[in-house]
Design a protein around this nucleic acid. Structure first.
Lengths: 217, 217
DNA sequence: TAAATAGTGTCTCTCAGACACTATGTC
DNA sequence: GACATAGTGTCTGAGAGACACTATTTA
């Protein structure tokens, strides 16, 4: 393909004033719920100045999702995620040192799976006050939020913030945090119930009538 | 950013067994309505063997949308488009010659704006029978179709297949072609009318009562 | 028994969909 | 007048939202 296209167009300059190919990176908005808020994981920048979304350069022959998995394992200690692509950031001056394209990703993870992260080199920030981040990362967070809210609008906890079984109360609290609001209790139940299966079991340990435990359909 | 990350990770191999950076290309599913069907523009491959979506390599410092505009101007003779990013194709073996990432795009254009294209080196194929294309381009077409259908589900001709003013009849025919089906005449009118403004004028030249001309809101 | 939470019956409002009627043009 | 197409009144059914009632537990 390269060969073909080059043949029809003028040859690309190589090693002239700038690089002929951009470096390609991946960056991920990894969201979780903590302190009753939707928060985003940030990693300390290697030069020590400030914070950024966890990311990495793409290694030779590597798939994007593998680069994301590698960067999240390295920097946040999480494995087994399935991040989704959001968009490519391509402003030529995003990075002052070099021409870098970044493929933005999003994923959501339960807080307990972040237990292994380095508390000095990572932090959680609320998605609506993430601080000022470099490289267009604030824009990634906005897009990530739109994406996750759209996913949570129709289906019960599609990204697994809750365990395998859960009550409608906890499900509604999660949706309330993700979306910023949730329908009333009874409406929420009727919207979600078609996508749930009841396990006969009930949750214990609360006041009031025990709630049934459900599983995603 | 590059500098930073490299510092924290092992240096990337340069000029060893493979290139340290992928070539980055853009490819575009450019859709139009012709012969009462939704069709996709294809360009002859430079090596003469078969067809592919129009695309190009990203030039040094270039924005992705500029690369798309350039490739469509070169190969199809269309300007003034606003393509949307779909996703990055990153299978390492997509291209047998080289490691190439491609950023897939989609746009929609009225057939008359394709009048300048070279009839020998471009062709239109129905989106549901596009032929077998290289480099994962069939997957791009599927995604493009999903994207365009979602856009046309709620709004009247958001991508300008029709001129500035149009009748509800022609609008409904366009939506029927894009989506494969359309609501009944009266329902369609009531769904679309909030997003339209009537011009007092009516369309002439047809049989029956002349229809009012509308404009997008 | 009081308080708290779960689960549900039911009313209303909105809207998509369908049918049928009226309106206005051409042949 | 016959026909074709545009535009609209109205009925129906499904579903979201709200309210209020019943059910089941703990303190």
């Amino acid at each position: 393909m390269a060969t073909e296209r080059t043949r029809t167009r003028s040859a690309r300059p190589v090693g002239a004033s700038g690089p002929s190919r951009p470096a390609v990176a991946v960056d991920t908005a990894l969201l979780t719920v903590a302190d009753g808020e939707l928060q985003v994981v940030q990693a300390r920048r290697p030069n020590g100045k400030g914070w950024a979304l966890p990311g990495s350069f793409l290694e030779p022959g590597e798939r994007l999702h593998d680069a994301v998995a590698r960067s999240l394992a390295d920097k946040v200690g999480v494995t087994g995620l399935r991040p989704r692509q959001l968009q490519v950031l391509d402003e030529p001056d995003r990075d002052e040192h070099e021409w870098v394209l970044s493929v933005a990703h999003v994923d959501v993870v339960a807080l307990d799976r972040l237990a292994d992260r380095d508390p000095d080199d990572t932090r959680l920030m609320p998605v609506d006050r993430p601080g000022r981040l470099p490289f267009g990362h604030n824009e990634i967070i906005r897009r990530a939020l739109d994406d996750v809210r759209a996913r949570y609008a129709a289906l019960p906890d599609p990204d697994g913030l809750l365990p395998d079984t859960f009550t409608l109360r906890s499900l509604r609290m999660v949706h309330e945090v993700v979306a910023g609001s949730a329908p009333q209790r009874d409406t929420f139940r009727r919207v979600m119930e078609p996508h749930l299966v009841g396990t006969g079991a009930t949750a214990a340990g609360s006041r009031g009538r025990p709630a049934e435990l459900f599983r995603r359909r």
